[in-house]
Design a protein around this nucleic acid. Structure first.
Length: 874
DNA sequence: CGATCCCGCCACATT
DNA sequence: AATGTGGCGGGATCG
């Protein structure tokens, strides 16, 4: 013991030890250490220590543990003792023994050495922050685990968090792909947007309270509850889970929690989040009862996550002292603004961000794989964020030909959806104000689709779990319409439209008919599917209405709110807002410019794009917030405008059904089956349904024009069932179709027949035929005028390729960010209003916020929301 | 003694 | 059944 102490005490000791260690560990593999002469000599010592010592030695030599130790040491060494290395080993030999002792110590050395954070640093040290897009590094779990000398379980902890930020993606079994931080900023942006929707108010609330007041949990909680629901993570396009039923896999809570946790920071004005608050917020469900144990567990997880995030340099530990005392908290030290996409936080090279490129690179593998059939699916992964982790996994598991079978699957899925919807509805519907904790329940498989029942409920859509895609937001916004009432009207005899839902479902087939044009707002609502549904539904309509009123204004009319009027104006006429609906006329006639606009708008995708685009000119600060509102408004306007203009779609049935609403271009939605986890196909109704239906078998081959939408996007859409299928109307169909196409792709005029399609890569033949113009132009300006945002999005997204459409994915990605604003959450019911207000009042003091700008934004957004909601109330 | 959080059992998913 | 994943919480350590 004495020796031991001495060694420690003595300054030398450390040196000795270290060098020793180094010699052993560093230089050599564990095996070597034994080899070392010194050690041999020493051995006797170990004995004294314990019989075990020998065992340890041996074990260590052979076991991974040893490695671990060594590695750890290595890591530390540099840090702890840079100097020591110098010491000559020879001198120390005597000490060596001591060293051995020390070793043990070291080995055991506090948990700190074993800490997740440290481990994570080591892990991260192995990979470049900004790897060349070309090189793809794959990470082998086992390998890393052994190298780092830890159990693989630990690696999972790290990787899961990294995965939530898209720094890595799960490629295959023990394989992860390292992406680096290239997309980090984009991911954060998406998270931020999503976070605002979900937690914006909440956070404001809490923070205000905390800081200024004390907060009472109960109250807040309730309020908050609605918010919390789980929104799925952003990016993950989860795989098939989409099917409601599928939700199964326990959603990786760690990943989800990680994203949510990050969102809290991004939303927080102070950028400081205390663990307890985070835990409370993250504990979705019924908070009231939050049991202590659950809370405790959540906190534990947060520590795990925080350790990794700390290693990433995104947060740091701090303490906040409140009335109660000092509470552990973390402060966000990562990037706060996410202008375009890339930037990373720390000073890494911003330049590296080639978002697109990077992502592509990352995804490439997937694509490749997918190439065959699954492409769609994969593609679908679209990765907002990138890596489609889910996708990958899926891939492996995916059946080679997912497409077939689908119908049956679809049906089941649909059913599931319906069930889900119902549940929610039941739960939520009645209480719009308060959202129950909705979790998406696994639906029992009901078969009813009953649309009617679903009045307000937004469907969580299939993938509650998965979902999180940003798209929804964007989508929702575009789609929004004020028409709840309208929808209901139409319902009358027909099951077709649900009041709130824009889409029609056809029970008969696996296909769903989607009507756009209905209420866009609703769409939004849908997005929130998870928890808020009820609220949203309520809100949305109101909002829509308001907007709608505004909309009426002529195109020239400036935007109401903050938004840049210009944009809107530009957009208005030509574009059709939501894409879904296309003015028939426009289509019929040469689409000309209008089309382009419509295209952009139409698709959800577009929406997403808006974010970025939003105001090209406009200052960034306002962008987001403003964007959201704008989008919705714009959309509405567009939709309305167009509608009015070309009200009657070619199809009567549809029109009739929907009639009130507008004509909506109709699409058939095919649920993704296992194979296509993320992708949803929309076929223009106009075209012969039959063709589509057929498709089930061979999706891949289909020539039908369709639009792919990531499932996530769909999630936001409410499905309606209508027994009737619109038979396609010829003329209209074209238009609609085109519209549809245009949305994603810009295939404007293609006739119904042209297949539009989107492969993973691309696709399709664009037939530009008649009105090819769109595409070509679209890339840049043409669309622009429509709406700057859109235009941008378009351009950005697809860029040029003739058909943008090729990758819906891409679009999504880009757009995602933007989309967020739309999220349903935004829309809150009256209650929320109150909620908001509260904070607002509180907020004033806001001083906390460093960035006035930020705040302003927030506040503004909030305000808007409030306003909207209030108005809507009216 | 509260804050942290390592460790690894064990359930669930996938192969 | 084997293996991959990862939820989860006991209980050890830290401060």
């Amino acid at each position: 013991e004495n020796i031991f102490d001495r060694s420690r005490m003595a300054p030398k000791t450390p040196i000795k030890n270290e060098p020793v260690d180094l010699s052993k560990q560093k230089g050599c593999t564990p095996e070597r250490s034994p080899i070392t002469p010194v050690k041999i000599v020493d051995r006797p010592q170990p004995d004294p220590w314990t019989p075990t010592a020998n065992l340890k030695m041996l074990v260590s030599a052979a076991s991974p543990d040893m490695r671990d130790r060594e590695k750890k040491k290595e890591l530390f060494r540099p840090i702890e003792n840079s100097e020591q290395s110098n010491t000559p080993d020879s001198l120390q030999y005597d000490m060596v023994d001591d060293n051995t002792v020390d070793e043990f110590e070291k080995q055991r050395p506090s948990r700190k050495q074993k800490s997740l954070g440290l481990l994570c640093q080591k892990f991260l040290a192995r990979y470049p922050s900004y790897p060349l897009s070309t090189e793809k590094t794959t990470i082998s779990l086992d390998e890393v685990a052994s190298i780092l000398g830890v159990g693989r379980r630990r690696i999972y902890d790290i990787v899961n968090v990294l995965e939530s930020l898209h720094l890595v993606s799960h490629v295959a079994k023990n394989q992860y792909c390292w992406h680096g931080r290239h997309n980090l900023s984009q991911t954060l942006k998406v998270l931020q947007e999503a976070g605002e929707l979900q937690y914006g108010e909440l956070m404001a609330f809490f923070q205000n309270k905390e800081q200024d007041l004390e907060y009472k949990f109960g109250e807040r909680k309730k309020e908050t509850v609605s918010v919390s629901q789980d929104r799925p993570l952003l990016d993950f396009p989860e795989p098939d889970c989409s099917s409601a039923s599928a939700g199964s896999r326990k959603d990786k809570s760690l990943r989800i929690m990680s994203q949510k946790f990050v969102m809290l920071f991004l939303v927080s004005k102070t950028k400081i989040v205390t663990l307890d608050i985070a835990a409370k917020i993250l504990i979705e469900e019924t908070q009231d009862s939050v049991d202590h144990s659950k809370f405790k567990t959540t906190v534990r997880r947060l520590y795990d996550i925080a350790n990794v995030l700390t290693s990433l340099g995104l947060i740091k530990k701090v303490h906040v002292t409140e009335e109660r005392g000092r509470k552990p908290a973390f402060k966000w030290i990562g990037p706060v603004e996410f202008p375009g996409k890339t930037d990373e936080p720390r000073g890494h090279s911003p330049t590296s961000d080639p978002l697109p490129g990077t992502q592509k690179g990352a995804c490439a593998p997937y694509q490749i794989r997918t190439t065959g059939k699954q492409r769609f699916t994969r593609h679908a992964s679209f990765n907002f964020a990138q890596p489609c982790e889910g996708t990958r996994r899926k891939v492996s598991s995916e059946p080679s030909s997912p497409h077939q079978k689908r119908q049956g699957e679809y049906c089941s899925k649909i059913i599931n959806l319906a069930a889900v919807c119902r549940q929610k509805i039941t739960q939520d519907t009645r209480n719009p104000g308060i959202t129950s904790p909705l979790s998406l329940l696994p639906v029992p498989g009901d078969s009813d689709f009953c649309v009617n029942t679903l009045p307000q409920a937004v469907f969580p859509v299939v993938q509650a779990d998965v979902p999180s895609i940003s798209l929804p937001n964007g989508v929702s916004s575009q789609t929004l319409h004020p028409s709840t009432s309208e929808a209901s009207k139409t319902e009358n005899g027909k099951p077709t439209l649900l009041p709130n839902q824009p889409f029609l479902c056809f029970p008969s087939s696996s296909l769903f008919m989607l009507c756009s044009g209905l209420q866009e707002n609703k769409l939004r609502e849908t997005l929130p599917s998870t928890g808020d549904v009820a609220n949203k539904s309520a809100e949305a309509p109101a909002a829509c209405q308001k907007r709608s009123s505004h909309q009426c204004t002529s195109p020239s009319a400036p935007a109401d709110d903050e938004e840049p009027a210009a944009k809107r104006q530009t957009m208005e006429e030509t574009d059709v807002p939501l894409s879904l609906v296309v003015p028939k006329k426009s289509f019929e006639s040469p689409k000309a410019e209008s089309t382009p606009g419509s295209d952009c708008t139409s698709a959800v995708l577009l929406e997403a794009s808006h974010n970025d685009l939003a105001s090209p000119a406009a200052p960034e600060a306002a962008d987001r917030d403003s964007t959201k509102p704008l989008d919705s408004q714009e959309q509405e306007k567009w939709s309305q405008n167009k509608n009015p203009n070309e009200p009657s779609p070619g199809k009567e049935h549809i029109s009739k059904e929907n009639g009130n609403q507008h004509f909506h271009p109709q699409y058939l939605y095919v649920q993704p089956t296992a194979g296509l986890s993320n992708c949803n196909f929309l076929f223009s109704a106009n075209q012969a349904p039959g063709a589509i239906s057929l498709t089930a078998n061979q999706l891949p081959s289909l020539s039908v024009p369709c639009v792919m939408v990531p499932s996530a996007a769909l999630a936001s859409f409410p499905l309606v069932c209508s027994p009737t299928i619109a038979s396609p109307v010829s003329p209209v169909s074209d238009g609609s179709f085109s519209a549809a196409t245009s949305m994603n792709f810009s295939m404007s005029g293609l006739a119904s027949t042209t297949p539009v399609f989107v492969g993973t890569t691309a696709v399709v033949t664009p037939k530009v035929s008649p009105v090819p113009s769109m595409d070509p132009q679209q890339p840049a300006h043409p669309t622009l005028h429509l709406s700057p945002v859109l235009a941008r999005s378009c351009s950005a997204v697809k860029l040029d390729s003739s058909m943008c459409m090729g990758h819906p994915v891409t679009l999504l990605k880009l757009q995602q960010p933007s989309s967020t604003p739309l999220t349903p959450k935004n829309i809150r019911p009256a209650c929320q209003e109150a909620f908001f207000k509260t904070p607002g009042s509180l907020g004033d003091p806001v001083a906390w916020k460093k960035n006035a700008g930020t705040q302003t934004r927030n506040s503004s957004s909030v305000q808007r929301r409030l306003e909207i909601s209030s108005t809507s109330t009216d």
